[in-house]
Design a binder for these strands. Structure first.
Lengths: 283, 283
DNA sequence: GTTCCGCATGAATCGATAG
DNA sequence: ACTATCGATTCATGCGGAA
């Protein structure tokens, strides 16, 4: 199993990857006007123009039955939602992608704040794109406990456990999923309930580990290839690694790249020889 | 207080309403390919073209500081999400609307089913449009109990009530919210958790009462005017009525119209003289 | 009166079959 | 090939009847 970390601009680094080699692309690109010191602070109006060349490369490296999961949310500009995400979806389709689905990530602990004309933004889009109508999907790997658990199953659990686990129905992870038999499991929906990991360790990741974990399990098998062209601190790559998938991460910012490298190399989960496992790290 | 029920095609009936007279429009128009025997089963490709003349009239009758809430969801066509809702948002902006916000309605009891390439669709869009960047919003009226309510307040509730009410956290209504003091309340987010009322008595509504209730409280005050141009069985109008708002409902289908009329007239909640209150009913 | 169990019912989607 | 219809799949919810 391999894990490759590439340091640099993904617009360049993606060209080094072979055609039709990736099973799952999952990424959270810099939002408009964010990370201005790395990707140059793309303005909302230029966002689509900036992203489409990257999307083109992603389409090239993705396998025919692979999947591209794009985590994105439009920001508020002059009191209204900007339309660059809508424009992006339309442009992606024009480029030949299928807009298969839009998953909803409900962020349970959204950023606090109060404004006179809007409430806290508590959800993000997880856009699913494919190269074909047919693609690999392993639904059984993300099944969740059934909903009528309340009436029968949880009688002997503690008060807080009962209440806490309730909110995980739909999509997400209960901690005791392993205890349920298959008959008591149901397929999830396209709504994911996951809290953002805020003060975890010393890095605040774009998404919690459970998010890439869900999609990696859903769209790949062991030894498949996972790509994150905007790796950040490497959450998706680390999870792919832990789940026994090959992974490629690209990051332009030195600070993020070094942190991701440290985390991945220090990870005690890999039983393989470190040298063999990470010989593809380039910096 | 008045409640007007207009029988007919809203493309015609809307013309009878005066300019700048409505505080809140909340509606759930027929989705593409649905209600084929009333509005002619609009195909997804023609949806925007069909809706925009209606949107134009809605813009005319809405007050300058009023709000338009549109409940809609795109359907799957040939294995991918159709883009007519995205196109609709872009067309609305071109018509002069502000796309202020997109609320998320998480439907816990989504339609069942299993398919090889997708999960159950469990959420719908609640698009907020405005005529200006400034509009009326009464945030305090929809505050919800704070996060630790479960540990303190629900001790003496029944088991099922506890579990049931839990799912309404985030945005929504607990039945006993009135018991909380303001100090224990927090502002909600833009995610609403509400189940559809399916097996309800003898009418199944498009949305549960708590949905229009939330928006009516948020965007109107007593004696303001609420409009639903696709009234259906009249859930939104009935709730507006109960909350002391003036309301106008338009419905083209005889069956729905009659049902709505019966429900509204039989409602024992109105203390006003029935004749005065409903003298504007036309059929 | 409670609690529990069974049953009908949805803004659905896919694939096969038929015209 | 392209459209129209139909069956199979599946689960949260509320209601009614039974213990």
């Amino acid at each position: 199993m391999k894990t490759q970390l590439l340091f640099g601009d993904c617009r360049e680094k993606l060209k080094e990857l072979p055609d039709n080699s990736i099973d799952l692309i999952i990424t959270s690109p810099p939002y408009a006007d964010n990370r201005s010191n790395s990707y140059g602070g793309i303005s909302p109006d230029d966002y689509v123009e900036w992203f489409m060349p990257i999307a083109s490369e992603l389409k090239r490296v993705l396998k025919q039955d692979g999947t591209f999961i794009l985590n994105i949310k439009e920001k508020v500009v002059h009191g209204e939602r900007h339309t660059y995400v809508l424009d992006l979806i339309l442009a992606m389709r024009k480029q030949g992608w299928f807009w298969t689905e839009e998953f909803m990530w409900h962020k349970k602990n959204s950023y606090p704040g109060k404004w006179p004309n809007r409430f806290r933004d508590s959800w993000e889009r997880l856009l699913q794109f494919n190269k074909n109508r047919r693609f690999n999907m392993y639904q059984e790997s993300v099944m969740v406990p059934m909903g009528d658990w309340a009436k029968s199953r949880l009688k002997n659990l503690s008060e807080t456990d009962k209440i806490r686990d309730n909110s995980k129905v739909g999509s997400g992870f209960g901690k005791r999923i392993a205890n349920w038999t298959e008959r008591e499991m149901a397929y999830p929906t396209n709504v994911l309930h996951m809290a953002t990991e805020c003060g975890n360790k010393n890095h605040s990741a774009a998404f919690p580990e459970s998010l890439p974990e869900w999609f990696i399990k859903l769209f790949t098998q062991i030894n498949d290839w996972v790509l994150d062209p905007f790796m950040g601190s490497g959450t998706a790559i680390m999870v792919a690694n832990r789940l026994g998938r090959n992974a490629i991460g690209i990051e332009i910012k030195t600070e993020y790249f070094e942190r991701a490298k440290d985390i991945l190399i220090d990870a005690p989960l890999r039983l393989l020889d470190k040298k063999e496992s990470y010989d593809a790290i380039t910096s």
